[in-house]
């Protein structure tokens, strides 16, 4: 059995009266591509935020490589090896592409890597199409996604958290992106990805959990998930799910 790289135990995250994540437990194995799906507002992003130190969960624990990392700050976790991207792309708009990536390699890596060579190598790896001295503020959304991914990879993380990176890609871009994620996994990086794009989830994820109203309602391989009655209900509503059967 392979090692568990990330584990959550009964994580609860509330916003005022709203319980956005309700007692979610999961185990992610080293080297796998792990999917999180669920309808809008299910709590997927909130769960990732609670794992990566952006939010502090009210209850439960998060373990990374066996260490209890609950309540540790985002910058600390980044250096420990948890890299991430955001659903709404984040960049440093008045910096060049190269500087954006260097932020990751200088500050986010356990051993700071200062040289441009490292940043250029990562940009090549993700296939970034523009000159490295382009100002990030001039990029389009898809380019920004690749840039953010490059910055995350530059931190030398062992675990990469992706939040709907495939959303909005054309079919051609999607195929390329799926290849990229596989190459990232082949580098030995574990990937947890939130996705609505079914083609992406079905082709690439080894295991998936499904969230609905903050609760984990299913867990398994893509095949198991598509045949799960609760999941169909969550996505289509009860009556339609019955019809679909």
């Amino acid at each position: 059995m392979s090692n568990i790289i990330l584990e959550t135990k009964d994580v609860v995250k509330k916003f005022g009266g709203l319980i956005a994540v309700k007692n979610v437990s999961m185990q992610v194995k080293e080297g796998e591509i792990f999917g999180i799906i669920g309808p809008n507002g299910a709590g997927k992003t909130t769960l990732l935020n609670s794992v990566s130190g952006v939010y502090k969960p009210e209850e439960g624990q998060v373990f990374f490589k066996g260490e209890n990392i609950t309540n540790q700050g985002a910058h600390v976790l980044c250096r420990k090896g948890i890299a991430r991207t955001y659903q709404i792309v984040n960049s440093f708009p008045r910096m060049t592409v190269l500087e954006n990536v260097k932020i990751g390699s200088i500050f986010g890596s356990a051993i700071p890597q200062d040289d441009d060579a490292k940043a250029r190598e990562i940009l090549d790896f993700v296939g970034f199409p523009l000159p490295v001295d382009t100002i990030a503020g001039n990029l389009n959304t898809v380019q920004l996604k690749y840039l953010e991914l490059a910055r995350a990879l530059a931190t030398n993380g062992e675990l990469l958290l992706l939040d709907e990176v495939a959303a909005g890609l054309t079919p051609g871009e999607l195929t390329e992106f799926i290849e990229l994620i596989k190459r990232i996994r082949d580098r030995g990086i574990t990937v947890i990805t939130i996705e609505h794009v079914m083609k992406f989830i079905m082709t690439i994820c080894e295991r998936i959990i499904v969230l609905n109203y903050g609760e984990k309602i299913a867990e398994g391989t893509p095949e198991e998930i598509v045949n799960d009655k609760l999941v169909l209900e969550a996505y289509l509503g009860k009556e339609h799910a019955v019809e679909a059967e």
Partner: peptide, 24 residues
């Protein structure tokens, strides 16, 4: 220096800066 780079990162996007390892 690198410190200046960290300042600019924080000034332009503090959330991204933190998630990239910058101790804001």
């Amino acid at each position: 220096s690198h410190i200046g780079l960290a300042f600019r990162a924080i000034g332009q996007n503090i959330e991204a800066a933190r998630s990239s390892g910058v101790d804001s």
